[in-house]
Design a binder for these strands. Structure first.
Length: 566
RNA sequence: GCUCUCGUAGUUCAAUGGAUAGAAUGCAUCUUUGCGGAAGAUGUGAUCUAGGUUCGAUUCCUAGCGAGAGCACCA
């Protein structure tokens, strides 16, 4: 829609560029507006409001199809457009016939994007940080898909390194507590957690520290069969457990990469480019001297000759490219890795210049919990499952009185609790830290995922009772509530484009909430099924249908399910 | 110490350099059972400080104050 209006202005005024068009924040400034007159007035050194009047005359002249009901100027020289109801009605009809794919656009067409996110480490906990990365990554992936890009989801997991050595050390110590084959995944993972905690603690001690470091080498070289066996076992338990979580969260990865695969290749690359002076030797380690570029120096191969995360990441870039010839590669992590990624990209610009250009790091803030219960101040990490379960039990309590079959109830409480958590992550701009407030999530009121789901479910129930036609005359809808809703609905494709372009899915989240609010207002103020005039009723039902679809689609992009009733 | 990010109602979050800085929650008041009240309506209240650029600054620049993260063999 924005594109369309911008094109119209360009042609009408014979400009050589597309003017900026946006939706004004305030009501009363029309549906769309442009600051064109202010910009042009400056070039011509003329007063902007005066120029705006002249341009409006030309725009009205050019509007042969009657797209606009009003074109007027306000404030410092903005030109504001109000759509004609015929035109708006036509747009709604298009949306209605587009059906479930309303909102899909082509702005990212031709892009092949690989997105890496979640990245939990086998043998370690899947904590709320991973949950946050997953929610953001999944939403970005879906958003880009909706904007027409081809997207591949990648997960990169650290299955070698000191944390593994610590865990295996613990597994050996706790040998007699090892769960047997038939134990539940939960018990197995709990055992791994205990083993890691023990290993991490013992690592603090001088004598065991050396032992664990030796163990680490053996794991890397796969030299000891007994250790290999433990390694295989623990790794599998972890990965199976992660898979359960992905399923719950609605993520399906196309590729899994492991450090055990990137390590040797990365090491080789670094040694190769050491000869070409991209890397230096320093204190027995091989480093990249980032200081030359205003960054800091980082170790790529440590003094024991083992590749660090940095070297592995270098190998990973190439492996990703082998799997998927991407035009763009996005890596999503917490922002504590930001500085390190800059060094990595600089090093990569020598080793794989083309890939480095296509790679971007997307750092996000931390998911914090308010002081008090579930606080992480004690230093303990909070597992994703703990948080999800806590929210879920609150949701279940709320649903106590609902008369749904048990199976459906379970599905709904899952969908609602995931939505509560995901929405509170996605509503905020990703780069900032956010505070997840358990209490306000449990209360399930206000700008929340469950509120949007509820709004959808209400409409879905109405639509069940009244069949909507394939087309309708939306001009008949004269209530303010219906008109406001209609104007919001046709913005959806623009929002999809904008958030895909800026990689900011919080715009989708905000939009979904605003739309839900408008649908509720419409629902409250405008009786649908009771409407006696057949044609008006058909139009109302059709508007409800588009609203329901759009709510569902915006939730879909956020990775949130929309049950038909909740 | 250096680098990066951030600083907006009591609280949690918004605002591609735009118009009267939006929401939610909290508090106060109203709608009272209808197509699903997990709802809707009204009121209340904020851009850290000092400069600068601009027709216009929460946004860009400089300095200060405050918070968080990072700064060599962890990932």
């Amino acid at each position: 829609m924005i594109q369309e209006i911008s094109q119209f202005i360009k042609q009408a005024l014979k400009l050589d560029y597309l003017p900026n068009v946006e939706v004004p924040k305030e009501e009363g400034f029309g549906h769309y507006s442009t600051n064109l007159a202010i910009i042009e007035a400056k070039k011509l050194a003329r007063p902007a409001p005066e120029l705006a009047h002249e341009l409006i005359a030309q725009l009205k002249e050019a509007d042969k199809n009657g797209l606009f009901e009003k074109i007027e100027t306000a404030g410092p020289g903005f030109i504001n457009f109000t759509l004609a109801s015929d035109f708006l009605s036509k747009k709604l009809s298009e949306a209605l016939s587009t059906g479930d794919s309303f909102g899909k656009t082509k702005s990212q067409k031709g892009e092949k994007i690989i997105i890496e996110y979640t990245d939990p480490n086998p043998f370690k906990a899947f904590h709320i940080g991973h949950l946050m990365t997953n929610a953001i990554g999944e939403a970005l992936a879906r958003n880009l898909e909706w904007a027409g890009a081809k997207v591949k989801r990648a997960n990169y997991q650290g299955d070698v390194g000191m944390h593994v050595a610590k865990s295996i050390y613990g597994m050996i110590q706790l040998n007699n507590e090892t769960p047997d084959k038939n134990a539940s995944l939960k018990e197995k993972v709990a055992f791994l957690g205990k083993a890691y905690a023990l290993g991490a603690k013992e690592y603090e001690l001088e004598e065991t520290k050396k032992e664990i470091e030796e163990l680490n080498k053996k794991i890397y070289q796969q030299s000891n069969p007994a250790i290999n066996k433990l390694y295989k076992l623990g790794r599998k338990w972890s990965l199976d457990y992660f898979e359960q979580i992905y399923k719950k969260l609605g993520t399906k990865f196309d590729y899994y990469f492991f450090e055990s695969n990137t390590a040797k290749f990365g090491e080789k690359l670094v040694r190769e480019w050491l000869q070409k002076d991209v890397f230096n030797e320093s204190n027995g380690a091989i480093v990249f001297d980032g200081e030359k570029y205003g960054l800091h120096t980082r170790v790529f191969i440590n003094s024991q000759g083992l590749p660090t995360y940095e070297a592995k990441e270098l190998g990973l870039a190439k492996l990703k490219y082998k799997k998927c010839k991407y035009s763009r590669s996005i890596v999503i992590t917490g922002n504590e890795i930001k500085a390190y990624f800059q060094v990595l990209l600089k090093a990569m610009s020598f080793v794989f210049p083309k890939l480095a250009e296509r790679t971007e790091h997307f750092p996000h803030g931390m998911l914090r919990l308010p002081e008090g219960k579930m606080s992480s101040r004690t230093g303990e990490v909070i597992e994703a499952e703990t948080l999800l379960n806590e929210v879920k039990s609150a949701v279940e309590q709320r649903m106590q009185d609902a008369h749904f079959p048990p199976e459906e109830k379970k599905e709904i409480s899952n969908a609602v609790s995931v939505s509560a958590v995901k929405y509170s992550i996605l509503r905020a701009a990703a780069k900032n830290d956010i505070v997840f407030d358990l209490e306000s999530s449990i209360s399930l009121s206000g700008a929340s995922g469950p509120y949007i789901q509820y709004s959808y479910a209400r409409l879905a129930q109405v639509l069940k009772k009244g069949a909507f036609a394939k087309s309708a005359n939306f001009v008949l809808l004269v209530n303010k509530e219906a008109k406001d809703l209609a104007a919001k609905l046709i913005q959806f494709p623009d929002i999809v484009d904008f958030s895909a372009k800026t990689l900011a899915t919080n715009h989708i989240a905000t939009y979904a909430y605003q739309l839900a609010k408008l649908t509720n207002r419409f629902y409250e103020e405008v009786p649908i099924l009771k409407e006696e005039d057949k044609e008006i009723k058909a139009a109302k039902l059709a508007l409800a249908k588009i609203s329901a679809t759009t709510l569902k689609n915006s939730l879909e992009i956020l990775g949130i399910e929309a049950p038909g009733r909740i």
